[in-house]
């Protein structure tokens, strides 16, 4: 009986944590990075975060912090507004894999591998933002 109670309580706590994490995720993110790019060459990307979360992707399939070739990012860090989890926190305009390359390789690379999702410039950098 005692064991059952602990299981239920633990399950509830984990579920609450998951809900709090998931509910903290925005549906759409506008990737504008005005701090990094003084002069924009293309319109910002309106990234449908919820579409990616609804699929079979794990958070750490995209979000990463590599150490010795291993992604050590803790998913609990992934909350909206946390500056450290922004791509530009590591991928600056000066880094080898700079911010532009990071986005392009991450997004187009995955879309190419999965054979779905946009791969053309204007499919992400839309002049008319999607509704």
């Amino acid at each position: 009986m005692k064991g059952k109670c602990i299981t239920v309580v633990l399950g509830g706590v984990i579920a609450a944590m998951m809900i709090s994490i998931l509910s903290a995720q925005p549906e759409k993110i506008t990737l504008e990075n005005v701090e990094a790019y003084k002069k924009k060459q293309r319109p910002p990307v309106h990234f449908p975060h919820e579409v990616h979360m609804a699929g079979d992707l794990a958070c750490t399939d995209c979000h990463h912090r590599y150490e010795n070739g291993k992604n050590i990012l803790d998913e609990s860090e992934l909350e909206e507004g946390t500056p450290n989890i922004q791509c530009r926190a590591c991928h600056t305009t000066q880094s080898r894999v700079n911010l532009r390359r990071a986005f392009h390789r991450q997004c187009i690379g995955c879309h190419r591998r999965e054979k779905r999702g946009p791969r053309l410039c204007g499919e992400c950098h839309m002049r008319t933002p999607p509704k």
Binding site: L120, C121, G122, T128
Partner: peptide, 13 residues
């Protein structure tokens, strides 16, 4: 036309 995303973007590209 593709840069300005006139008409059907994918077809134009």
């Amino acid at each position: 036309m593709a840069y300005h995303q006139w008409f059907h973007y994918k077809a134009i590209l």
